[in-house]
Amino acid sequence: MVTGKVGFGPARLLSGEATVTVEVRLPNILRPSAGGEASVEAEGATVGEVFDDLVEKYPGLRASLLTPEGEMHRHLNVFVNDDDVRYLGKLDAKVGDGDVVTLMPAVAGG
């Protein structure tokens, strides 16, 4: 459902308001960098904007979310609801009000 409160596109850019609020679920390993919370709220219309908001609130998360160049960290899995953002444009993946963004470490080895 899109309401008048949720702004996308030029109107949102002009107003400067980030009115899309999502729940971000954090794995154990990242919780100490976010005040010990398992779940926090963040604003932004894309995963990248949500990350920017998270980093503003919790600067200690930056190195786990983004590379120094600002790309999505390769050892991080990011899901919007049930979807892996690798197939949705990574940081450009759109999020909607009330979406759940789940962060999990990549689990891999040899």
Binding site: D82, T102, M104, A108, G109
Partner: peptide, 19 residues
């Protein structure tokens, strides 16, 4: 997800479902 005899990557969606 790596489909390899030398390395492994837990399929991300399987990881989400497990969580």
């Amino acid at each position: 997800a790596a489909r390899s005899a030398r390395i492994y990557t837990v399929e991300p969606l399987d990881l989400l479902r497990a969580d």
